[in-house]
């Protein structure tokens, strides 16, 4: 009896503190939502308000009718979608090849990719400086197309591994059967393997999209204002002398919602794709 009481008290205490922790850690998100629906003037109080006394949609109507939000959104969508397309077009054939064929230097290439993913991070800004010099020389700065290509290039090592290990789990009998039936390699990949590998490919696509959607440093370095993506646009907006914080908040929410929703919807796919691909390896 006494032990049951103790368990009950512990349950209540632990659950309460867990809820409190979640509330505290998620406060910044709540605050942004709050800031987006408050009138600009009311942001400058000296008293903290957990529930706003005044509510307005002004920031959202400004966003729709007067802001540069849709220009930045268009640029972000172009870059993110191109990145996904480039990544898939590059990674699927090479992952298939690594999974199915034996050829000279195969292990060396794969090992090289692995080493690169683990250590290239340290070369981040050095690589960026050199990349800038190369692009300046080739006159390729300020191009959304080139930006997406660079993002896709960065996706190659990790995602080739991920998809290669995923392809490894699909029995070779499928290939043999299709090839005996007279299918070409192209048909084999498109009609037989891709449908089976859907979770793995979805994982690659979603990671590529989310990466390009949120990337800031490279975009900030090579793009000019008319080509700004959302992260660069939002940064330039906050960098101005007087920041309309309610406007910023509204844009921030519309920027974050797609990736958060995408992540939540795809969570099952991502876990399946990761579990069968890279991580299990």
């Amino acid at each position: 009896m006494k032990k049951r009481m103790l368990t009950l008290i512990l349950t209540v205490l632990l659950t309460a503190s867990a809820v409190l922790i979640v509330v505290i850690f998620l406060f910044p998100i709540y605050w942004v939502v709050l800031s987006s629906i408050r009138p600009y003037g009311s942001l400058f109080t000296t008293k903290f308000e957990l529930i706003p006394s005044e509510v307005t949609w002004e920031a959202y109507t400004w966003l729709i009718f007067e802001s540069k939000f849709f220009l930045w959104l268009r640029n972000s969508l172009i870059v993110s979608i191109l990145t996904v397309v480039f990544t898939l077009v590059l990674v699927i054939p090479s992952a298939y090849s690594f999974s199915r064929f034996k050829f000279f230097g195969k292990e060396k290439f794969l090992y090289g990719y692995l080493v690169f993913t683990q250590f290239a991070g340290g070369m981040g800004i050095a690589g960026l400086i050199a990349l800038y010099a190369i692009l300046a020389y080739l006159n390729l700065l300020n191009s959304l197309f080139v930006l997406a290509l660079i993002y896709a290039a960065g996706n190659v090592p990790f995602n080739t591994w991920l998809l290669k290990t995923y392809f490894d789990t699909i029995p070779r009998d499928f290939d043999e059967a299709a090839l005996v039936d007279g299918a070409s390699y192209f048909n084999l990949i498109v009609d037989v393997l891709l449908p089976i590998a859907k979770p793995g490919i979805a994982t690659v696509a979603i990671f590529s999209f989310m990466g390009a959607w949120g990337e800031f440093i490279l975009a900030q370095t090579i793009l000019s204002p008319e080509n700004y993506t959302l992260p660069v646009g939002l940064y330039s907006f906050v960098g101005q002398f007087e920041t309309k914080w309610n406007y910023f908040s509204a844009m921030a929410i519309l920027f974050a919602v797609p990736v958060v929703v995408m992540y939540l919807l795809a969570q099952r796919y991502l876990q399946m794709g990761l579990a069968m691909g890279g991580v299990k390896k």
């Binding site: 054939p93 090849s97 199915r100 064929f101 050829f103 400086i129 190369i134 290039a153």
Partner: peptide
């Protein structure tokens, strides 16, 4: 087979080498 294998890998390898590995080497220069 190994010719096919290389053909499938080459595009991703070229893009990767040019935009990732080459800048790192070039930065040392």
């Amino acid at each position: 087979e190994s010719r096919i294998a290389f053909l499938l890998i080459i595009p991703s390898l070229i893009i990767f080498l040019f935009f990732n590995l080459y800048p790192i080497i070039y930065s040392v220069f």
